[in-house]
Design a protein around this nucleic acid. Structure first.
Lengths: 226, 226
DNA sequence: GGGGGGCGTCAAGACTCCGTTAGGACTGGC
DNA sequence: GCCAGTCCTAACGGAGTCTTGACGCCCCCC
């Protein structure tokens, strides 16, 4: 669950925020001065901090610096002051966003979501490796690994492999392969395919003469089977 | 240098932004509709996007989605609309910040700095040093150590090493290397790569003629293996 | 059972690409 | 204005890659 640290010295505001956040399934901690804010942040490791600038003990900017000394947790400043200088100072001290009171709760929540999303590690899209029983193809790193050792492929071999792997399981026609790898002028040079498919099989198949992953569909094309 | 993409259909606003940003040593590209914004973003890889929501062709939110399909570049929305719904929609679509016109230039710049800082890779303690058997690269301190002594690298050598090390294990194409180190106009000068790779190997490899860490993939590019 | 098209295999020449070297141009510091 | 360091550029030999043609096999169709 996402954890939020609310820092404000006005009890009403804290209460309003806490109620709203808990209703949306956030886990909420609250501090009403700078010192306890820093303590709570260290103890609870929140995913986002909502920070009022007007605290009784520390200047809000000091709190930001204190946090930035050891964490990159998103900090959203809440402040009644509209002055441009204050905003610049807080942002340059390390704040991520600056919202002036009074603010709409919807907007604040959207800004929180944006800040949290941004802080997430790049999770997705890294699924660029294809694994078979015999070998592993890493499309991003342009690497092929077999039995723990990297296999060297020539540019043409790699290009051909890439087209086949990106269409894993599907039949790719000879015309399409030739066009993608050698260009539109070579759409009839089926010779090339035979030569390079053989080389790929020799480098990657356990038994090159009985391929299991690079299947020939006579008269039609080739298919890569993971 | 930090690159900014400004997207707005009102020429005055674009002009004002461009002047202000260039005065502060940002590199600026400008687009006046959504389609060219997406194109420019793909071509130039900006470090931050300033996006007006009211574009002639696409809805601003569509532009955000288009960008978020392939990049996490910070997007700061500039809009004349104060409605909370609009803000929520833009932020949830993937925007990082939402500034309502008219805005103070100081504040916008501070929000830009915050967005850019946040997007920076975790430079500190995390994994800013890469260690191999022969040498150690400290990306944060810009230092290379070998057998206890620091190795001096020229700016170009360092830049090249940095790109390779940041993509450790992955293959980096010659085009990408040339573009990152020398700029888009030099994408075909593979000469440079050969010369500077040789210098890097001479300074860092135990046996420069049989490199173990700076691997050549003929016809494709180079790869740094830790 | 014979013929033919499609496929796998092999080898050799042409070609591209890479490592290396060296010299001249350029820049910044003294 | 000189000097050291750095960058750009061109050229060459060698290694690896691509292209190309030829040959034999298998399977399908006649």
């Amino acid at each position: 669950m996402t954890r939020v640290l609310v820092v404000d010295d006005e009890p009403q505001i804290v209460r309003a925020l806490v109620i709203n956040l808990k209703a949306r399934k956030y886990e909420v901690d609250a501090a009403h001065d700078g010192a306890s804010a820093l303590e709570l942040a260290a103890a609870r490791h929140p995913d986002v901090v909502l920070l009022d600038l007007g605290l009784p003990d520390l200047d809000g900017v000091e709190v930001i610096r204190g946090l930035r000394g050891w964490t990159r947790v998103p900090i959203i400043v809440l402040s009644a002051r509209h002055s441009s200088d204050e905003k610049v100072e807080a942002l340059d001290a390390g704040a991520d966003d600056y919202v002036t009171k009074p603010f709409g709760m919807d907007e604040l929540l959207a800004r929180m979501r944006a800040a949290i999303r941004r802080a997430e590690p790049v999770a997705g899209e890294d699924e660029s490796t294809v694994v078979t029983e015999g070998f592993t193809v890493d499309l991003a790193a342009k690497k092929v690994n077999r039995d723990g050792t990297d296999i060297r492929l020539t540019p043409t071999e790699w290009h051909l492999l890439e087209v086949l792997v990106r269409n894993a399981g599907r039949l790719v026609s000879q015309t399409q392969l030739l066009q993608e790898v050698w260009g539109p002028a070579y759409r009839t040079e089926t010779n090339y395919l035979r030569v390079y498919l053989a080389q790929l099989r020799r480098k990657l198949e356990a038994d090159p003469s009985h391929p299991r992953h690079f299947i020939t569909e006579p008269g039609m094309g080739y298919r890569f089977e993971p």
